[in-house]
Nucleic acid binder design. Structure first.
Length: 284
DNA sequence: GACCAGGGCCGGC
DNA sequence: GCCGGCCCTGGT
């Protein structure tokens, strides 16, 4: 029988987290349920009568998922600090109020954001899943189905660039290959990164082949939980040019600018000028 | 079918 | 600091 716990959580919408573009292994399965694979574990979660249900024991929740979903952060309090006269940000934050900055595994974030460059969400997911199926560890979940953990640096370092290219990674294959090798050879260690401040961690990450300013910021935000990081990608750049011609007030939002970045990103992707399905280009 | 953009980065200038 | 090239796919 499937284990299950249920709880009240504010500012938490599973579908928003899954589609927020920070995590590529959280998928809609059936009946409003979502699956997520992280730290080698498989979880299903869904909303039910205003509560959130997790398919795990209380112990597993406390050990892993509570932290993973960043349950100790008060996102409502963050949103209240947004400048009330900033109409765009207020709308964006309201629209994505169920988003959380997950505490994912650093290695996985490094690799998935190497994959993310000049790529789209659908294909990032596909590439990531292929990589996991090919080089991750096969495990069995509570349903008796097989799932794959995210491949370790050791596993990926052994794979040839050609084999990685066969996972449809394109030119990113060499970035992943070299990065995995650097980590395995000890030329780049991950653990010291956790002790660094945002700016220093970013500087270190940029040393990795294939990691530039934007990807380094994503790794800082999603892999090291440096919520000061404010990654500027094509969507955010467009938003900044359109709504903040005089510059985004980063100083005002020190300590949580990254969360606002996520609201703006999610809002633009799903509701912005090029968003599909809104049938409109208006933003109130 | 052609063309473009998608959570950019590298290397040459 | 700027810019061409890069893998591949899905959408127009």
């Amino acid at each position: 029988m499937e284990p299950m716990i249920k709880m009240n959580v504010d500012n938490f919408r599973i579908e928003q987290i899954a589609d927020s573009g920070q995590c590529f292994r959280m998928n809609s399965i059936e009946n409003g349920r979502y699956s997520v694979i992280a730290f080698g574990e498989y979880l299903e979660l869904w909303h039910e009568e205003g509560q959130v249900c997790f398919s795990c024991s209380q112990e597993e929740y406390e050990q892993l998922w509570h932290s993973y979903f960043d349950m100790d952060t008060d996102y409502g309090r963050m949103r209240k600090q947004i400048d009330p006269s900033d109409e765009y940000l207020i709308c964006a934050a309201e629209y994505g109020s169920g988003i959380r900055i997950l505490r994912q595994e650093l290695w996985e974030v490094i690799v998935t954001f190497l994959i993310s460059q000049q790529n789209n969400m659908k294909r990032i997911r596909k590439c990531t899943e292929t990589l996991c199926q090919q080089y991750g560890e096969g495990k069995t979940n509570f349903k008796g189905n097989v799932f794959y953990s995210f491949p370790t640096a050791e596993a990926l370092a052994e794979v040839s660039e050609e084999e990685l290219r066969a996972c449809n990674l394109g030119y990113r294959a060499k970035y992943i290959k070299r990065t995995a090798q650097a980590v395995v050879d000890g030329n780049f260690s991950l653990s010291p990164l956790f002790d660094l401040e945002y700016e220093e961690a970013k500087k270190e990450l940029i040393k990795l082949y294939g990691v530039g300013v934007k990807v380094a910021d994503c790794i800082c935000l999603f892999g090291l939980h440096h919520v000061d990081a404010f990654p500027i990608d094509t969507h955010i750049l467009k938003v900044l040019e359109c709504y903040y011609p005089n510059g985004f007030p980063l100083e005002r939002y020190q300590g949580f600018a990254g969360i606002l970045q996520q609201y703006a990103f999610y809002y633009d992707v799903n509701h912005g000028l090029n968003a599909k399905g809104t049938g409109s280009s208006t933003i109130r």
